[in-house]
C-alpha cells in the first residue's frame, strides 16, 4: 500500500486505465482535468471500480456521499485528496 498523501492526475489516469480500460476514441493523455467522465467514456461503475482500487492502494475509503456529484477528474482528485488528508 502506498503512503502517498496526494494523488495526481497521472496517478488517476493510470488507475482509470487499470480499472476500466480506455475508450479507443479518446486521448487520456490530453488535458482532461475538466472533461466530464461521461465524455471520457467512463460510467459510474468505472468510477466505483477506480474508487475501490484507490482504497486498496492508498488505504483511503471514500464515503458514499463523497462520490455523489463527482463528474470530472478534478472533482475526483479533490475528493480523494481530501480523504487522504483526513487519514
Amino acid at each position: 500500500m502506498s503512503d502517498a498523501t496526494e494523488i495526481t492526475i497521472d496517478d488517476l489516469k493510470r488507475i482509470m486505465r487499470e480499472s476500466a480500460g480506455e475508450d479507443e476514441s479518446i486521448d487520456l493523455d490530453g488535458d482532461i482535468l475538466e472533461v466530464p467522465f461521461a465524455e471520457l467514456g467512463y460510467d459510474s461503475l468505472a468510477l466505483l471500480e477506480a474508487a475501490g482500487r484507490i482504497t486498496r492502494e492508498y488505504g483511503v475509503s471514500l464515503r458514499d456521499d463523497e462520490l455523489d456529484g463527482v463528474e470530472t477528474p478534478r472533482a475526483f482528485l479533490d475528493a480523494v485528496n481530501a480523504a487522504l488528508v483526513r487519514v
Partner: peptide, 8 residues
C-alpha cells in the same frame, strides 16, 4: 475486445 471491456 475493446479496452473498456477488458477489466470487467
Amino acid at each position: 475486445i475493446p479496452s473498456r471491456l477488458l477489466p470487467q
